[in-house]
């Protein structure tokens, strides 16, 4: 990861920006929509631990003087799909061996939605962080 960030630093122009987008929470939330709100049913059991490594790598290149944090924003990203496809997507987004757990979770959300007269569709919710870092001047404190 650090090597990819160093490559990004190399190809960026002076004052160029690095934009990193990744989940700000370690577990994807699954539930269903009721009108404009999201009803939480459960979290995926497998943490998105590789994104912690991404945060560590960003801290490392900032400490090395390659980039300076300019801004960060968060938003909630919803993903919708039919039962099987959403379970597959959840599994794909986390650790190996999560398939059965993901399928059970999506089934639970589907049942909860069907039991709610105002429930309309099952979805997954992630809080996403967008970080914008600026390439530091060549003369700054490179290792």
């Amino acid at each position: 990861m650090v090597h990819a960030l160093e490559q990004a630093w190399r190809v960026l122009r002076t004052n160029g920006e690095l934009v990193d987008i990744h989940p700000a929470i370690t577990h994807t939330q699954v539930g269903y929509c009721r009108a404009r709100s999201f009803v939480f049913v459960g979290s995926s059991g497998f943490p998105l631990i590789h994104y912690r490594d991404a945060s560590r790598a960003l801290r490392y290149v900032r400490a090395a003087g390659l980039f300076q944090q300019r801004t960060s924003k968060t938003f909630e990203c919803m993903t919708y799909a039919p039962l099987g496809e959403l379970a597959y997507w959840l599994t794909n987004s986390s650790e190996p061996g999560a398939a059965e757990q993901s399928e059970r979770l999506v089934k639970r959300a589907t049942q909860a939605m069907k039991a709610d007269p105002q429930g309309n569709r099952v979805g997954a919710r992630e809080r996403i962080i967008v970080r914008v870092l600026q390439k530091a001047d060549i003369g700054s404190r490179r290792r």
């Binding site: 990004a8 190809v11 987008i21 990744h22 991404a54």
Partner: peptide, 21 residues
């Protein structure tokens, strides 16, 4: 691959990692 970018130095204004770092 991100670890071996086949581009010239200082050739982009913005680099984006979207769920990929």
């Amino acid at each position: 691959e991100g670890e071996r970018l086949p581009f010239k130095t200082t050739s982009f204004d913005i680099v984006v990692f979207g769920w990929s770092l």
